[in-house]
Design a protein around this nucleic acid. Sequence first.
DNA 1: GACCAGGCACATC
DNA 2: GATGTGCATGGT
Length: 224
Amino acid sequence: MDGAPDFRDIYRALLARFGPQGWWPGETPLEVCLGAVLTQSTNWGNVERALAALRKATGLDFAKLRALSEGELARLVRPAGFFNQKARRVRLLLEWLYGRCSGDFTRFEAVPTETLRGELLALRGIGPETADSILLYALARPVFVVDAYTRRVAGRHGWADARSDYDELAALFTAGLPRDAAVYNEFHALFVRLGKEHCRRRDPRCHPCPLAGLVRGDPCAGTG
DNA sequence: GACCAGGCACATC
DNA sequence: GATGTGCATGGT
């Protein structure tokens, strides 16, 4: 695909426009893991309701969360939608965390990122975005997260084919950015902000587009 | 009431 | 390999 811009310029422009986003919106690595599953195809506001219910019931204590039955979990995460699926997925993730580190995330420090990614992807209900969100935002690994907003923004600006798969899109961005978890963290959060505010699904063009004019031939030029 | 939201698995062709 | 569908709540 033509016209891949200098993503370092994009990064600087978005940071100047929106400021640091302070992601992930969660206090602990465990809360990040829960949010990563609960936010699958779901508005973050609904995820917060589900997290609040989980917090009220367990204090987000690892052992207490693990002691919940699947039915109890489903009832608590109900506001996040797909609650039966998500209860199952959260349980699988908690069991993996228990077996892998007994809930102590510091024990992951010596484990290679690719090993962890493979194990997460092997869990039913954990796909590439959820796995990478956990790796980046809970474990601070330099892994680029591709989500619906990343895909939409890249497509609108002609940086990637609409049918590019997850790994192709991730490669596009990682090739253009320093391999740094802090940069990937902020970049992804800024893209979500950009997508929510300026790159909506219904409109074929972004407007006003904060990126217009940064790239020659950009279809959003003139909308910024 | 229609459309949408920070996916994923599975069936079918 | 590509495409379609189920999963479900709550906001706009």
